[in-house]
Each structure stands twice: as structure tokens, then as C-alpha cells.
Design a protein around this nucleic acid. Structure first.
Lengths: 197, 197
DNA sequence: AATTATCATCCTACTAGTAGATAGGCAAGC
DNA sequence: GCTTGCCTATCTACTAGTAGGATGATAATT
């Protein structure tokens, strides 16, 4: 892959994450990478194709990161914490989630971008479900949440927090949500397992 | 306020929540309300002004709903549940959150829309914080989360879930997140308050 | 080694279509 | 007779995308 092609992909990703799909143009891209609009069409004939490639790259990068988290962390809560810090990078750079940006324009989104976005979220949910399941077997997590619930609240709240804190309080705000997630997923503090009823 | 003006506001809100700010045009609006593009400019001279009005209406409607929830529900968890069901309406109708759509285009968003979006989220966070504080005083909620944390995880996860489940599993998926929130905010099940250390 | 052909990458110049917005006119109602 | 609410026609700026040519590096041929 040529340098220019990669530069285009990187620049396009940033633009979409800051402006949305309809909100960026080949002219914007041209300003940033330093070649003419028509030359961009040489590398990516259509905008849809360009963004489809951006999306695939984004998914691959995340899947790689998830794999590395599993290698580097053993505890379920630490793994989920590390997962949350992936989003934090976006907050710091002022970048929203690519798939959040795409989903905001759902109705006018080309089908392949839609299916790619769906796949992104399913990949993430499935991963958290797996992590939580292992965590439950090791008694590392709050068992009053099942795997589906845990995955849902983790991905949802991190996606939501990334969107909100980019507008409000940045990483400081984001970390409040991260702390709340960890507290919610932690096993209840040392209990005599007494139960009502 | 004339009927046409309200029709335009309603139609514009729907379009933004399904297509984003850059993703909808006066031509789209014209198709839906049945008057010409130029006539829309009579009611709303600029797109920015139109959307600013849409946003204010949206905020007002939500604030009214929050007020009604306080009147109709006494328990903190029931109030937060009712709050979550406001989002659920969007999931059912295939509509994302207006402010989520706007925030996806942050970098190219006119300033007044940005400040309105910020205000929306601050209003919601402040409301949940208040509800949770009262709930804590009445021992209705999980005290291991403070008000800021509770508000953050509620608003973030509901915003995230609305975005995600519109793509994935609709209201069925959304309710998993809602259940997870309620579990997380509930006081830990009957405990002897034994503590380590 | 010199020459030729091929290919990758960029360019200028252009298309048709759409964006938000304006000018000025027409009809109905108070 | 002025205001309200719509119209047609038009404007400029921008959209994604195309046509065809210039450049320069590499490969193939002589």
C-alpha cells in the first residue's frame, strides 16, 4: 500500500470522526493531503468505497487492540478498563467513534457501510460477553449482571460517554463514567451472602 | 405559531435524527411538507436558525417530560426507569437522539447549536444527579456510586444504547441495557454490611 | 548501453447535480 | 392597502465523479 493511500485513509477517518460522513468532502481531503480532488479519485474512485476501507481498517485496528488486551491483562475488570481506555484516546484527541458518526446518518448510509457498522458493534459486544463470562467463572465480577447485560452496559456507556464528554468535560468527565462502570461490574463488597425471601 | 411552521419543525427534527445535520436539506423538507424550498426560507431564513429552533423545542419537550416524571414517580429507580423509556420511544420509531446526531458533526457545527447541545446534556446530567441524591437519602439506591457517577453512567449508557440498538436489536436490545442500569443502581441485596480492612 | 514500452501517480479542465439562499411577483384576508 | 404565505426563477458555491494529458520511474527490448 502506498504512502498516499494510507495518508488518505488516516485523514478521512479523522474527518469523519469530527464532521460526519456527509460533513466531509473530497475537497477537505485534498486540502489536507496535498493532492488534487481528481487525484484522490485515482486512489479511491468513490466516496463510499473510501469510507468502506476506512471502516474496515478501523474494525481491524480495534480487533487487534482487543487481542492485545487479552494478552496483557488477566483480570476481567482490568481488561474492561483497558478497553475503556481505548475510547479515552478518542476523547483526548477530540475524535468521536467512527461508527457512532456513521450511525447518525443511518437512513442515507450506503448498505455496506451500514453492515460494517453493525458488525463493529457485534464484535465488541461479543468480546465483552466472552471476557465477562471468564470473569464470572473466576469470581472476578458482579454476578448479578449476566454476560449480555454487562456487554451492553459497557459498550453503550463508553460510546455514550465518548460522545458526551467530547462536548462537556473531556477525559475528566470520561473517567467518571469509567469509574462508575468498574464499580457496577465489581463483585459486591464482602458479603455474608444473606438473601431475602 | 402557524401549522406550517410546526410541521417544518417536526419534519426537520425527524430528518436530523435519521440523517444528521449535513445529511438533510431544504429540498428534503420541501418534499415532506409540500411547499417549495423558497417558501421554507420565509419561515426559517437560514438552516442554522431552523435547527436552533428544533433544538430548543427538543430541549423544552425533554424538560417537560422530566418534570412530569418527578410528579408521577416517587422512587428514584422508577424515575430513572421512566427516563430510560423516553429514549425507548426513539428506538421504536427508528429515531436517534437529536443531540447525538449534532455532536457527530461537532467540528462544522454552528456555535449556537453546539452550545445548545452542551446545555441539553448538562440539563440531563443535573436532573439525574438530583434524582439520585434524593434516592440516596431515602436509601433507594446503590450508595457505592456517587451522584456524578450515577448521572454519567445513566445518560451515557442510554445515549449509547439508543445509538447501538437502532442498528442491532431494537427495543429488545435496549431493554437489556435498561435492566443492567437498574441492577447497577439498585442497593446491594440485603447485606450484613461487613467490610474488609 | 541505449532505447522503447508500460505503468503509477499526479495534473488541468470539465460535467451534471445539489446546496443554501435571494429577488421579485401573486393571491387571499383583515 | 398592507401583511401573510406562498410561488417561479435565479444565484453562487459546492458536491462527487469523469476525461484526457503530463511526468517520471521501472521493465523490456534491441
Amino acid at each position: 500500500m502506498s504512502d498516499m493511500r494510507n495518508e488518505l485513509l488516516t485523514s478521512a477517518e479523522g474527518l469523519i470522526r469530527r464532521r460526519g460522513y456527509s460533513g466531509f468532502s473530497y475537497a477537505d481531503l485534498s486540502d489536507r493531503v496535498g493532492i488534487r480532488k481528481a487525484s484522490i479519485h485515482y486512489h479511491f474512485p468513490t466516496k463510499e468505497g473510501l469510507v468502506a476501507t476506512v471502516l474496515q481498517t478501523y474494525r481491524d485496528r480495534y480487533m487487534g487492540a482487543l487481542h492485545r488486551i487479552e494478552e496483557n491483562f488477566g483480570n476481567a475488570l482490568d481488561r474492561i478498563d483497558a478497553y475503556g481506555r481505548l475510547y479515552l484516546i478518542g476523547v483526548d484527541k477530540g475524535l468521536g467513534c467512527l461508527c457512532a458518526a456513521l450511525s447518525s446518518e443511518l437512513e442515507i448510509l450506503p448498505v455496506d457501510l451500514r453492515t460494517g457498522t453493525v458488525a463493529f458493534f457485534r464484535e465488541h459486544l461479543a468480546w465483552i460477553e466472552k471476557i465477562y463470562q471468564v470473569g464470572r467463572q473466576n469470581a472476578e465480577v458482579n454476578a448479578s449482571l449476566d454476560d449480555l447485560q454487562a456487554a451492553r452496559i459497557v459498550v453503550s456507556s463508553l460510546e455514550g460517554a465518548l460522545m458526551i464528554e467530547r462536548l462537556l468535560d473531556g477525559s475528566a468527565g470520561f473517567e467518571i463514567t469509567m469509574k462508575a462502570i468498574r464499580t457496577s461490574l465489581s463483585p459486591p463488597i464482602l458479603v455474608n451472602a444473606t438473601r431475602a425471601g
